[in-house]
Structures are given as structure tokens and as C-alpha cells.
């Protein structure tokens, strides 16, 4: 049985376009599913429907085997969720939050204290446990939010953009914890993100959503393979050699645009790289910069939507891409 199933799920808001437009999902138990898309693509709306916070306009969804519309209480007992805004009460301490959450989940009284202590230690908040949350940093709030989602040992965990606004260190620590949950505890994780790297590193499978529709789905490797072969870009040390370098590269693939130098899409793949180096060396051509570009999830997004997901894509890649403007938030 899949931990999360959705069929033709739709959500319409008054006076607005369809936020979610007939999406289908099948997330296996123990899988980390990355839901990747730009701001406003429908990621959070999907999470809100799957977590029973928002009724779908049409379609059906089952989480942990229960229907999100008709069996809301059963669903809520089996899921944990850390939503985009880590909504915490600034007047309560971290430990009080955990004990409140445990009692909301009807956990036996004698277990609450131990569970709170265990989770605080796990997310590295033991020392700050008895301070009011109002004084926590953004990263501490996120970690507490994750601990709160885990209080009742839910088999399914929803994380809505869990690392937005976090520094690299906190982000890596959170990735480690999420990976551990899935591997060691068999927790199914449904994670939304707008970071390509996050989806790439963490997710077993990725669904790419744009304008409320899933435009691509598969493992990161499968998705990248769909886009095509890697490319090589060379910047000659002497700009006058540009033509010659271009001719050599053209032996290995079809030329593509490059702002600084010359670039080709490789015919055979990575194995061509050694041949290119040898050929350049044979003609005594010096290059200042030689780079192999693997297809990224952003290339997948670009291929499927005609737009880039990354706002800060390198300049040389941008020049190769039509219609790069990122969708406004």
C-alpha cells in the first residue's frame, strides 16, 4: 500500500486560478518524496490538502490508508507536519511546546516528559529547552518544529519548505535528520522545496510541480537522463583561438551557445572528455577553463516548463536558455 495516494486532486480558490490542477501522487512507504517547484506552484496547497487542513475542491487522497476528507481524525493521528511558517507560541518554552503537542496527540502522561527530552536532545535544543520560544533563532524554531512533528512517532511526515531561510549548517543538519528518519525508522517523508540541491540530495523520487500540475516525476537520475547528455564548455586562454577550439569541440558533439567560450552537447557522454583534452593538447591549444556540465534538475524544469527554477543560474547557462525569467512569488 502506498503511504500517500492522490487521484485527480484539485483545489480552486475564490477569484483565483486553480492552485492545484488534477494531480496524481503515489508515495511508497519509507520513501522520501521531494515536491519541487517555484513559489506559488501549488506545493503548500497540496500539503494542506494531504494534511486535512484544506478540503480538496475535487479528487481524492488517502494518507496512511485513510481518506483525507472523510477520515480526517485517523489521518491526523498518523501524520506529523512542519509547515512553512513554524507557528510557535512565543510565550511558551520549547519543552512546554513538546508537552502540549504530546497531550494534543493524547500521548500517555508518563511518556510525555521522556519523549520531550529525547526529541529536544535529538534536534540539539536541550540547552534552550526551558527558554521562551520568542527568543529562538530561525534555525532553532525550525528544529523545534521538526521535533513537534515527530512527537507521536508518525509513520508519515510532511515537511513544507523545511530549510527556507536556514543557513547552510542548519540546512545540512536537517537533511541528515530527515534522511535518518527515513532510513532507520521507515518514516515516509513528503517534502516540498524550491531548492534543487535539496531535492537532489534528499529525495528518492522527485515530482516537479508548476502552475498546479505535475510536469515530471521520477528519481533524480531518471529525470536528468530524460533531459539528455552532458555538455562541455571551454574558454580559450587566447581569445584568438576561439575558432580553433570550437572546431575541435565540434568533433565530439553539437555546438550550443556559450557566452564566454565555446560549448558542445557531447555525443557519447562523459567519456568524450578525455578525447577533448587530448585533441586540444595535440594542437597545443591552451584553455583557461574547461567544464563538464551534467544535466541538473533545473535543466529538467527548464525542459518541461521553458523556465528556470534557479534565480541565480550561471550567466553562461542563462544565455543558452530562452525565457529565463523566474516566476514571481
Amino acid at each position: 500500500m502506498d503511504a500517500i495516494e492522490a487521484e485527480h486532486l484539485v483545489r480552486e480558490f475564490k477569484n483565483g486560478p486553480r492552485a492545484v490542477d488534477r494531480i496524481d501522487l503515489a508515495v511508497r512507504s519509507g520513501e522520501i518524496y521531494g515536491f519541487l517547484g517555484p513559489n506559488g506552484a501549488g506545493k503548500s496547497t497540496t500539503v494542506h490538502m494531504l494534511t486535512t487542513l484544506l478540503p480538496p475542491t475535487a479528487g481524492t487522497a488517502r494518507v496512511a490508508g485513510y481518506d483525507v476528507v472523510h477520515e480526517g481524525p485517523q489521518v491526523r493521528m498518523r501524520i506529523g507536519a512542519a509547515l512553512q511558517e513554524a507557528a510557535l507560541d512565543p510565550l511558551l518554552t520549547g519543552r512546554e511546546h513538546l508537552r502540549l503537542q504530546a497531550s494534543l496527540q493524547a500521548m500517555p502522561r508518563n511518556e510525555r516528559r521522556a519523549r520531550a527530552g529525547e526529541l529536544l536532545a535529538r534536534v540539539g535544543l536541550s540547552e534552550a529547552a526551558d527558554r521562551k520560544v520568542g527568543g529562538y533563532s530561525g534555525g532553532m524554531k525550525r528544529r523545534l518544529d521538526l521535533a513537534l512533528a515527530l512527537v507521536h512517532r508518525p509513520p508519515v511526515l510532511f515537511l513544507d519548505e523545511p530549510t527556507t531561510g536556514l543557513d547552510i549548517q542548519s540546512r545540512t543538519a536537517l537533511w541528515g535528520e530527515v534522511g535518518r528518519l527515513a532510513r532507520e525508522e521507515g518514516v515516509t517523508v513528503f517534502l516540498t522545496t524550491q531548492y534543487l540541491e535539496e531535492a537532489d540530495v534528499l529525495a528518492d523520487r522527485v515530482g516537479i510541480i508548476d502552475h498546479g500540475r505535475i510536469v515530471a516525476e521520477g528519481t533524480p537520475a531518471e529525470l536528468k537522463a530524460q533531459v539528455g547528455r552532458p555538455s562541455v564548455e571551454a574558454v580559450p586562454a587566447d581569445p584568438a583561438d576561439r575558432k580553433l577550439v570550437g572546431e575541435i569541440l565540434a568533433r565530439f558533439g553539437e555546438p550550443i551557445t556559450s557566452a564566454k567560450g565555446v560549448a558542445v552537447r557531447l555525443r557519447e557522454g562523459e567519456s568524450d572528455l578525455a578525447g577533448i583534452v587530448r585533441a586540444l593538447d595535440a594542437d597545443e591549444l591552451k584553455v583557461e577553463h574547461l567544464q563538464l556540465h551534467q544535466p541538473s534538475l533545473d535543466d529538467v524544469f527548464l525542459a518541461k516548463t521553458g523556465r528556470s527554477l534557479e534565480g541565480e543560474a550561471p550567466e553562461e547557462e542563462q544565455s543558452a536558455r530562452p525565457g529565463l525569467a523566474m516566476e514571481p512569488a
Partner: peptide, 14 residues
């Protein structure tokens, strides 16, 4: 307003 109610709605079976 702060979103805390959403936390309650999510946690509370009933």
C-alpha cells in the same frame, strides 16, 4: 493570525 491555530487543527484528531 500567527498560524498556531493551524498547529492545533493539525494535531487535534477532533
Amino acid at each position: 493570525e500567527s498560524g498556531f491555530a493551524r498547529r492545533l487543527m493539525l494535531a487535534a484528531p477532533n
